[in-house]
Amino acid sequence: MIIRKVLPHELSEAAALSNFVFRQPEQKSMCKLFPYLFNPGISHSYGAFTEEGNMVAFMGMVPEIIRLGSARLHVFGLGSVCTHPDYRGQNIASRLLEECMDHAKRSGASLVFVSGDRSLYMRSGCQYFGRVSFAALNHTAASALQADAAEGWTIRSMVPEDIFAVTGLLSAAQAGYEQGPTQLLTLLGASAIPEIYRLDSQALVAIRNGKIQAFAVAAVHSTDGRSTASSHDPSQAVEWAGDVQGCALLFAEMLSRFPAQQMIIPVPWQEERLLELLKASGAKVSDGQNSGTVWMTDAAKLLAQCAPLLPAAWDQTFKVNSGSDNQDRSYVITTGREELTLDDNGLLSLLFDPESPSRSIAPKGFRTIPLPYLSGLHFV
């Protein structure tokens, strides 16, 4: 079996394999759902090929930059992992994953976000990460949000002419992906999350004082019965940005316009005001972690990319001991006379989880680093 990078002209073969594994004939092609994985261009993805050159397994990689205030994390999204049924059980996926992780290291990425938590990933050092609350908004809570809202809001469907205003709202968010209008339009058109849930994609904007103040896109049931999800399945918030009250109103409007008993809204921990509004409306809230898992390529790279968000002289506090493999890596946090040795899970928890058990040893001035929810528009 030959493991190597997928060439641009082979991406259509990769999409066909992914369709065979993941999609039914009547469903939208993976090529359309994940254009940055499968459309021709410079590929970061890897495949397994027979001696005859036939692709029998695929692992997709998309490079991204996550903006966290003045910090920029260089990351990869890893997904669309599939092996033809005839070739399973041959350790191909493990070999592919190893190649993808090496590729991420060579590229200077600090993190690889994986769209799953299979044993394949966990054995290779992937970790759960972050903190997210899941608000279940029902019609009673939606009505409460609408009743409590200040006057002067107008809500309508997003139109193409809104693209610069919406891009600006997303760019102003505390944590998010770097993207321009063209990338945003492509991802909105792809509608990956709605398609996965067998729902429709709807994007709305909230206007006040003549200006677009908030934006939201969600996976919803269609009013004409086109969506094939069960009628009992909730709708799902996918992405939003802008004025907090405006966003809450957009969720309430989505629930009013499109048939569903409730909408699930994944709220990252740093969006405290939005979570407070949803709780006050009566939405039921449960706590969890961010979507999928994450693998840290190199702690020194991660800390350097997070440096604008870390206390001064952070390099005197965080000491990295690079072992020969994931199991040997360790990190010493020093504050005054105290020292704490962490593994990968401990360091990722300290950096990204406000409820980390290591929080008490954090250096003076340290603040938990926010991350966007990973199953939004940029999901792979």
Rank of each mutant, 00 (worst) to 15 (best):
P35C: 01
L199G: 10
S360C: 10
A48M: 00
A307T: 10
Q27R: 07
S286H: 14
T182H: 14
R88I: 00
P160V: 00
P268H: 06
L347G: 01
S324G: 09
P63G: 04
N91D: 14
G60L: 02
S12D: 05
G41V: 07
P234M: 09
A260V: 02
F76S: 03
S119E: 15
R359F: 03
A218T: 12
F251D: 11
R23Y: 05
V244E: 04
V21P: 07
E272F: 11
A252K: 03
M254G: 13
Y177K: 05
S291L: 12
G41L: 10
Q289T: 07
D353H: 07
L342Y: 02
P268Y: 01
T317W: 05
M1D: 01
D343M: 10
G79R: 05
S94Q: 08
Y121H: 05
S119M: 13
L68P: 02
E151R: 11
I207C: 12
M30F: 05
G47S: 04
S281M: 12
A71W: 00
S227I: 06
I212R: 06
N39Y: 15
P357W: 00
A144P: 03
K284H: 11
G242I: 08
L170Y: 05
G365N: 04
R118E: 04
E178A: 08
T186E: 15
M296S: 08
N290L: 09
P194I: 09
G242R: 04
K301E: 14
S29R: 01
K284G: 07
A71Q: 06
Y46R: 03
T297S: 10
A307P: 10
I3D: 02
E51V: 13
F129L: 09
A14R: 05
M263S: 06
G60V: 00
G365R: 01
L377F: 02
A57I: 02
H378A: 13
Q146N: 10
S227H: 09
L303N: 00
L371V: 08
E239I: 03
F34P: 08
S124Y: 09
P234G: 10
Y373S: 07
Q261D: 11
E195I: 15
D233M: 15
D344T: 05
R198Q: 11
E195R: 14
G292T: 03
G176W: 05
S291A: 13
L78K: 04
F258S: 15
Q127P: 08
G168R: 05
G41W: 03
T228R: 04
R359W: 02
E64D: 08
T83D: 02
M101V: 12
P181I: 11
A214D: 11
L137N: 09
G116E: 00
K319V: 15
Y36Q: 15
G60R: 02
A299P: 02
K301M: 12
L185Y: 00
Q262D: 13
I369H: 00
N209T: 14
H139D: 05
Q305M: 07
S94I: 09
G365K: 01
Q183R: 14
I42C: 14
S12P: 02
P85V: 01
I369Y: 04
G176D: 06
H44D: 08
N290V: 06
T334Y: 06
F258W: 12
E272V: 15
R106T: 10
A109G: 09
V332S: 11
R106F: 01
S191Y: 09
V6T: 04
